[in-house]
Design a protein around this nucleic acid. Structure first.
Lengths: 224, 224
DNA sequence: TTTAGTATTTAGTCAAGGCTAAATTTATAA
DNA sequence: TTATAAATTTAGCCTTGACTAAATACTAAA
């Protein structure tokens, strides 16, 4: 069994690899530990064959490393969903609890809650839940910030770990599946005016960059 | 926050104190660690003011130590109940999962599952669940082994950690709340014949010593 | 009260994971 | 190409919790 620390490193590396590549410093920053600690751990992970490590060049996950990372991510997102759906946690509180529990549940627990939830594909923040055999749908949504005025979109995903942001987003209705019309974008990366649930709201760049959306398609119903 | 190791020691000490007193060797045996490791830990626990430690004399929990132990036990038993009731775990599997989870849930989680369960007083094995303010009802039941033939009793409690035994007990109907008539006790600590749910069953000493019961009272209904 | 046996503690190790400070490597800009 | 900055690694240290082997303390029986 992998230690919690090892699991946390793998998860972090996985997420960094998604965006670009995982270097010592980036891992250190993401995990809030000293760079020297990371170097140590990377050597150990390499010995465990969980990563490919080249000194001064960063790391990449091996196949077993990737599998392990996805397993933890599956735990995390299933637990978030379970806390929200079964225990009535608000969506800004699920991340922290899941952050601990993800390392300590058994396969049986995982299966039982997945079953209970009807094998969900996404967590409450719109993040996809890896399948048990380690598959994760490709998702590559644009942020609200990059979307042009005049478009109508559906919110797909928001960040999961910033409670304050999540409370704000819930407040203004920017939750996954919400329909959003982009009314106006002020020049020079200024505020964006949206219509959400019949209400007009104005958000700034910082928030707009963190809300990911996909185009709304009217004729999504396939009536054959 | 206390480490998992510290919590496990406190829990073990608490349970040993219930039966008699907690000595280095007994703790070592109960936890499956070397006695020297226990000595080390006892010194640390004493520094943390969680136990009173006198060299060569064993330990007793201080008030904060007792509180902490009861909190873990509350977690454990609530989780067992939750796994059983909400997730359909069989009663022989709840202990092991709870053994891990008990260290990693938040106050909020504790409260949410207690709420969900309607603030239960006992876990699936009949062990009492400490209240949030650290109260635990006195329980001092006799075992089936110590009960005389001819008596009718109600099962109160069975051990929680022996899966095989639990499966056997479930099989023959010896679960908490079951009504049991003691038909016959063979001499020289021999087999005991019981009537449980209209069926006659025969159990040996080893099992009888592990099932705790209280006298059945017909007129328990207080109709004023 | 001596002695054997048992319980306990001491001493010294080890691995995991963290840290800081110093050294080194790589990258960049003049 | 060379100086400097930034990234990374090395070296050495710390704490937690485990271990074994050796020393010591307690207890009970002769």
């Amino acid at each position: 069994m992998l230690s919690q620390a090892v699991e946390d490193y793998l998860k972090t590396i996985y997420k960094l690899e998604e965006r670009s590549s995982a270097t010592t410093n980036e891992i250190a920053r993401a995990m809030n530990v000293a760079a020297a600690s990371v170097t140590n751990m990377l050597k150990r992970l390499a010995e465990l064959k969980l990563v490919e490590y080249t000194s001064h060049k960063g790391v990449t996950l091996t196949e077993p490393g990737r599998k392990a990372a996805l397993e933890i991510i599956r735990h995390h997102r299933l637990i978030e969903m379970y806390l929200h759906e079964a225990l009535g946690y608000s969506w800004d509180k699920v991340h922290e609890e899941a952050e601990h529990l993800e390392h300590h549940i058994s396969e049986e627990f995982e299966d039982k809650i997945a079953e209970f939830l009807g094998h969900p594909t996404h967590d409450p923040h719109g993040d996809p839940i890896p399948t048990k055999d380690g598959k994760l749908p490709e998702t590559n949504h644009d942020s609200l910030f990059k979307t042009d005025a005049g478009q109508t979109v559906i919110v797909q995903r928001v960040p999961d770990s910033d409670s304050e942001l999540l409370r704000y987003l819930a407040d203004i209705g920017l939750k996954p599946k919400a329909k959003v019309e982009i009314l106006l974008k002020a020049p020079f990366n200024g505020p964006i005016t949206l219509k959400v649930a019949e209400k007009e709201i104005i958000i700034g760049r910082e928030v707009a960059e963190k809300v990911f959306v996909a185009p709304f398609k009217t004729e999504t119903k396939k009536k054959k």
